[in-house]
């Protein structure tokens, strides 16, 4: 089954959408099957229940019970390869 990955930012349409597109492409290039969806921070609580991983471009203060990844790395490309490796490691056995 495809892993479900949620990306959140304040509006769900700029930063998170950019990161979601990027992660989606990176995972596809690595042959990993996943649904990556951008949501706004206020809808996060709703979406996160069914998600396998959370990529954040805002400060994370809560424990959501699923692995959390650094969205800024994917946005800027800095530290992206390491973060991608960690993400794939977390979802590959689903």
């Amino acid at each position: 089954m495809a892993a479900k990955i949620i990306v959140a930012c304040g509006s769900g349409i700029a930063t998170s959408q950019t990161v979601a597109n990027k992660v989606s492409k990176l995972l596809k290039d690595r042959g990993v099957d996943a649904d990556v969806e951008a949501v706004d921070i206020h809808s996060l609580k709703h979406y996160i229940k069914s998600a396998d991983a959370y990529i954040s471009v805002v400060k994370v203060t809560e424990d959501y019970g699923i692995p959390v990844f650094n969205g800024v790395a994917f946005l800027t490309g800095m530290g992206q390869d390491e973060e991608l490796d960690k993400l794939i490691e977390a979802i590959k056995d689903l």
């Binding site: 700029a14 950019t18 650094n70 800024v72």
Partner: peptide
């Protein structure tokens, strides 16, 4: 952003005037 580092002294500020229809994702 996201509290990932110390505050930055921004030398360039790019303000994205976002609308739902716009192609801002590609621009960003």
């Amino acid at each position: 952003m996201a509290g990932m580092g110390d505050p930055v002294a921004a030398e360039l500020v790019i303000n994205l005037g976002i609308t739902r229809e716009g192609g801002q994702v590609q621009v960003l």
